[in-house]
Design a protein around this nucleic acid. Sequence first.
DNA 1: TATGCGCCTGGTTA
DNA 2: ATAACCAGGCGCA
Length: 461
Amino acid sequence: MAVGPRVSEWRKLPMSLTELCIDTTLRCGQAFRWRKVEDEWHCTLQGRILSLKQDATHLHYRTTWPKQTTAPGGPAAPLTPPPSSLPSPAPDQTSTPEDDEDDDDTLSLLTTYFNLPISLSALYTTWSAADPNFARRAPSFTGIRILNQPAWEALVAFICSSNNNISRISSMVTNLCLHYGPYIGTTTTTTSGSEPLHDFPSPSALAGDGVEQKLRALGFGYRARYIAQTAQIINAKGEGWLDGLRNPLSPPLGGGGGGGGGGRLPNPQPTYKAAHEALLSLPGVGPKVADCVCLMGLGWAEAVPVDTHVWQIATRDYKFGGGGKGSKTKTLNRAIHDAVGDHFRGIWGEYAGWAQSVLFTANLKSFARQAEGGGEGDGDGEEGKVEEEVKDVKEVKEVVVEVVKKEMTTGDKPTALRSTMRVTKRKVVIKTEVDEETDDMPIADVKVAATRTSKRRRVRA
DNA sequence: TATGCGCCTGGTTA
DNA sequence: ATAACCAGGCGCA
């Protein structure tokens, strides 16, 4: 739980898990700063710590403000302490419940950040009616919502995402905040120790001299130069430039005025395409990163970020690339990118990027167990691995025989099931996943076949 | 206007 | 064990 000088009471909001599932939404690769400690999620946002927990009927939230009061929405109060030193919370500062003013602001932030006015279940219904593949996969992945993140944060985070994986992106972004962002508070737990939380750094904080070198030293690799250069450009263009690319129908996080009012240089008629093109001018920003920023930072719901994973989905589940033979283009060029995006927009409509994130999450390896359907029942903090079977070495051959036999007896789709085996000294780990090309080839059948040969113990770790 | 390749790094696979 | 290879690309030749 977060401990800080000014901690509000827990408040709650009626919320079904099909409208919002924070366990999935906060881990599916669109936001990288949320941390789950025990059953609570924490993240700094707009100068405060936002803490969340969820049960079947409600979303519970509370706010922790830093010791030094910052005017909400005001200038970034530079209360930056030494970055690496562990900030010690004031010993005798007991948490005192806060007045309603802050909570009202927090509810507003929550509503905007999670795009709560948009009915997710209605969208799922529409997508499922239009797309059998979506209808097949979505039941195991409900409550996945596109977040309305600060555009600048989304820009930097997705520059970090190139040739990268979620866990490393998360550590990089966390490090960026730790070294350049204002200190907000500290999470403390009985089991996990404490962790200082810093807010996301401003463009000017990353526009100084030596940022690239320091980021390289922090392990950012070639992205260090992209971040430093982009920060200088954004800093020079002024804060309004990015927000001028926003969808006018999507409210900005800062709580400032309505559509188009964010910057001093209001874009007359911003469009998704125009925003996309403008972002491409920044170093480290290509078509995929630009679409991520459009979708998750600028409110353009029709933006469909096309990466290798989405390309896989398009070719595998939607037979993209024309009938007969698949296109031999192995490289994702710009034409392919646009064509895939247009294809999905044609199927799913104006919220295509939201639908894409559902299938994207279903395709993530870290959600493979959930993808098998049925037993989602998560909520605990330990999921995210492929289902495994551990066997003694002497039983391996029998298992292989059974699996192969099962593939052959099913006839037409031997590729529908993929198993990989990793042999260690004394045991064998079999990872199995189903392509779901056919519904009639449940993984359970294979498990039953394997059970006959051994007293296996199934490990879900 | 198109393909190929180098780039930082850490985890996974063969 | 160690070397490829991959991971939610981009920029340049």
